[in-house]
Design a protein around this nucleic acid. Structure first.
Lengths: 274, 274
DNA sequence: CGAATAGTGTCTTTAAGACAATATGCC
DNA sequence: GGCATATTGTCTTAAAGACACTATTCG
């Protein structure tokens, strides 16, 4: 609370009014003269395409200034009667038609550098959203949204769009916002922060496996992990990988198909992820 | 961006105005009619008292509704021309007179549950601030600020004030905000989130050691770790503890005092913590 | 049966943990 | 020298990693 508010509240308190009276007084007085920022959500929406063995990120082409023509993270304003979590879920639904659960999203970081939006004072709460591949139909039409391939190598990432030739380095030391100029605002920084977060948590809280939907095989999990680690999936030893991950999984009854010994199917079994 | 804004921007874009013209147009029009939240910072300010071997947290007694008489985290509104990081440093200085560096603070989480403040729509970006013990003079006078002892046992924490008898459980599963009624708003939840974050990161990013100031001994570091782990420091084997931590430390030239073999002094040496 | 793929087992290497032995300064 | 405390070293145990072998399905 600022000094001024404290003072006013102090004066009011000394009248020994009830809490109910106080709240009524508070709401009617012109308390909102303190400047307020817009608060938005920016959503790093990721999906994994099993057929292509490719990691995808949804970006939206800006049709207006600033950053006209640049690609940007999907996002929007937070509404007064929702948490940012709910706002993220709503935004994801509006953008892709997919209704996620809280276990599919994770708050990432709040970015607030002054002038990060040249128009106005905007603070953004960023999120990571793990979509399963059925979401990939969004952006297929000629709309302004498109799924980009995201290719990581150890320590940095390359984003590559099939149509346009966007090269974007997400290094370990990305510093100034949107330094390469391909992504709007500080969204490059947000994406690199997201990737680092995912990599950092993958071995003790494998939420990224929700990219694979309800159930999946060890081999599929290996491929997803390999994508984030920026290595061919064969370099992750199947036996050891399974040994590490099994504590988060429960076996489910599902019949596989295809050549080779049929693999078992697993689902995430992490109570606190709800 | 909401649909409406997008549309307006789209219309403007089609006039082929320059970016400069656009920004002027944008700022003059009544774009700020979207409701905005207040954005505050809540600061989990921690300190460690070597003499007492005690962990401390700074709380402020609320003199006004709501939560009149409850203890609350220090905090305040974010200013338009500062990042939340800078706001946290400013707030810490205003409250304690201590000018911290960015390496002493860490953004924790952004809390935005509707009605978390009964007065108004308030979103808060919470921070952890590691103060060294010289900060402990703040709150010594008869002001409304006081340093509380914070005592953790494995899995939960007990906050205990010397004067008043506040008992506060910070369990692993603290759910509803301020459920015990001793702390204002959702500050109990914020504190428990902070503790869990510190414990989770202590072995790969030991920022908590900035509680000890510029330099410290292995034994002191052990004691700080033990406080957060909720165990007597003797249960952490000195030899093994040192082996784990040494990769983050550099030896510094400092002469110890007291009985027993003199210990070496170390300082944090983690480049990316800056 | 052979190719392909998954599962399982074993051995080696490395890290973690327990504990003992040695070093240093103060009284 | 005796005590207190820190450092260093060793041994044991558990985890991580490399690699080989077995199992199952399809054509």
């Amino acid at each position: 609370m600022t000094k001024r508010t404290e003072q006013e509240e102090q004066i009011y308190y000394e009248t020994e009014a009830s809490e109910q009276e106080f709240l009524e007084w508070y709401r009617t007085k012109e308390h909102k003269k303190y400047e307020r920022p817009s608060v938005t959500i920016d959503n790093v929406m990721l999906a994994y395409n099993r057929e292509e063995d490719a990691l995808k990120i949804l970006l939206i082409k800006r049709k207006a200034h600033p950053y006209k023509g640049c690609w940007a993270l999907p996002g929007g304003f937070v509404n007064p009667n929702e948490s940012t979590d709910k706002g993220c879920l709503r935004e994801t639904f509006e953008e892709t038609g997919v209704q996620l659960k809280e276990s599919n999203i994770e708050q990432l970081y709040t970015f607030s550098t002054p002038n990060r939006d040249p128009r106005d004072w905007v603070i953004t709460v960023s999120y990571i959203a793990f979509l399963n591949q059925e979401a990939l139909k969004a952006g297929d039409d000629a709309s302004e949204a498109a799924w980009f391939d995201i290719t990581l190598t150890e320590g940095f990432a390359l984003l590559h769009h099939q149509m346009e030739n966007i090269d974007l380095n997400i290094g370990a030391e990305t510093t100034s916002a949107a330094s390469t100029g391909n992504l709007a605002f500080d969204h490059e920084k947000i994406i690199s922060t997201a990737i680092k977060r995912i990599i950092g948590k993958m071995y003790y809280q494998p939420r990224l496996l929700t990219l694979l939907g309800e159930s999946f095989t060890i081999a599929e999990a290996r491929k997803v992990y390999a994508k984030f680690l920026g290595v061919p999936y064969q370099t992750l030893d199947h036996s050891n990988f399974k040994k590490d991950l099994l504590k988060f999984l429960k076996e489910v009854d599902e019949r596989p198909t295809g050549v080779g010994r049929p693999s078992k199917f697993y689902a995430l079994d992490i109570p606190y992820l709800k």
